[in-house]
């Protein structure tokens, strides 16, 4: 059996994980974080910060949060590559890697900026 010549299973597994997580939690996250909390519907946004920010100082917790966001963003980049392909725009490995690189940069930035 010869060695595989691509990393497609990894790209796809990350896509599947990100897509599943986004499907499960994103709508709720959007409503709570961008609407309910800022407009004080569920309480004070400042109090929210006071309560949870210690948790966000924890390295492991923050790593998990960034990993979840990373994988959701990966899923969008992976899908976007195939959108371009479906539109008959000729895309190859360079475009794919550029999209993934963007996701990695965003993930690293989020990790470093909030560490």
């Amino acid at each position: 059996m010869s060695k595989p010549n691509n990393l497609k299973p990894i790209y796809w597994l990350l896509f599947a994980a990100g897509g599943m997580i986004a499907a499960l939690v994103l709508p709720a996250l959007i409503v709570v974080l961008s609407w309910l909390l800022p407009f004080g519907v569920v309480g004070s946004a400042d109090t929210f910060y006071q309560t949870v920010s210690p948790l966000f100082q924890n390295g492991l917790f923050y790593l998990v949060v960034v990993a979840v966001l990373f994988v959701m963003l990966w899923h969008t980049a992976h899908r976007f590559y195939y959108v371009l392909h479906d539109l008959h725009i000729h895309v190859g490995i360079k475009t794919r890697y550029a999209l993934y690189a963007f996701v990695i940069v965003c993930g690293v930035w989020t990790l470093v900026a909030g560490w």
């Binding site: 910060y49 966001l69 963003l73 989020t110």
Partner: peptide, 9 residues
């Protein structure tokens, strides 16, 4: 959300 998480941290 990524910028939000950075802000929260």
């Amino acid at each position: 959300l990524m910028s939000g998480v950075v802000a929260l941290a």
